[in-house]
């Protein structure tokens, strides 16, 4: 399974959780991976275990920082084939108590962060006439109480996926998204804390809510991202694939 040999991938939020699993999986398939995260340390920890990988510290909420990373990746590798923007935060609160800051942080990290990364890498992909963009939506795009910021951002990602697929298809670029269900990461561990539940209790409830009766792992999501980045998905574009153990 070295189907991505010679490919170069940029993964934001690659320092931990789903992003880190995506970095590992893409590297396993042969890609050189640029691991971008807020702080250098977690990015270096992930990149350090992978051949040809590099670590880049940047805030995806700042377009100049993202553009600078993309310039450095292009200088090093000469191309960018795959973009997977996984960076983002959750800031839940009932709508009556949601602060401007919580709204902005979520919309900025997920939506603006994905848009800025897409805008930065597409000139190279267009020039190559090859590109694979895999965005991260969520089953929360269907609606999620006490997280109107997050539900809005993830539904926005679905719209971004379809709009970009239409626009970039004729340029040889496919654009798809995965919509994960409940995955064991720090994001969901913090959710357990917020609700005053133990992790076991929280995870078990989530598992019971799925047809396959288990929660997901970052690797479950990464495997689907790798498919969408591969030649096997060459005719798939504009799709949001649910990776949630449930219809």
């Amino acid at each position: 399974m070295r189907g991505l040999r010679g490919r170069v991938a940029v993964v934001t939020g690659g320092g931990r959780g789903i992003g880190a699993a995506v970095c590992r999986r893409l590297a396993e398939e042969g890609a050189a991976v640029a691991v971008l995260d807020l702080d250098a340390k977690p990015a270096e920890q992930v990149a350090g275990t992978l051949p040809e990988a590099g670590a880049y510290a940047a805030d995806v909420g700042d377009p100049a920082q993202v553009e600078d990373v993309v310039r450095r990746v292009l200088a090093r590798h000469g191309r960018i084939d795959i973009l997977v923007p996984c960076a983002g935060v959750m800031r839940g609160a009932p709508v009556t108590e949601m602060t401007d800051r919580a709204w902005t942080e979520v919309l900025t990290s997920h939506l603006t962060g994905s848009f800025t990364a897409v805008r930065a890498v597409t000139p190279a992909m267009i020039a190559q006439r090859h590109g694979r963009i895999v965005l991260i939506s969520s089953i929360a795009a269907r609606g999620i109480a006490d997280h109107v910021n997050y539900g809005t951002a993830k539904a926005g990602i679905a719209g971004m996926t379809r709009s970009l697929a239409l626009e970039l298809g004729p340029r040889g670029i496919t654009v798809n998204a995965v919509a994960p269900g409940f995955i064991a990461t720090r994001m969901t561990r913090e959710g357990a804390e917020r609700r005053g539940r133990t992790w076991e209790e929280h995870a078990e409830r989530a598992a019971e809510g799925t047809a396959l009766r288990r929660i997901g792992t970052p690797e479950d999501v990464a495997a689907v991202v790798a498919f969408l980045a591969s030649a096997d998905a060459g005719y798939v574009t504009g799709q949001v694939i649910h990776v949630s153990g449930d219809p």
Binding site: D220, S244, G245, D246
Partner: peptide
């Protein structure tokens, strides 16, 4: 690779 995809 699709172990956690069902009903899609």
């Amino acid at each position: 690779a699709a172990a956690w995809i069902t009903g899609h």
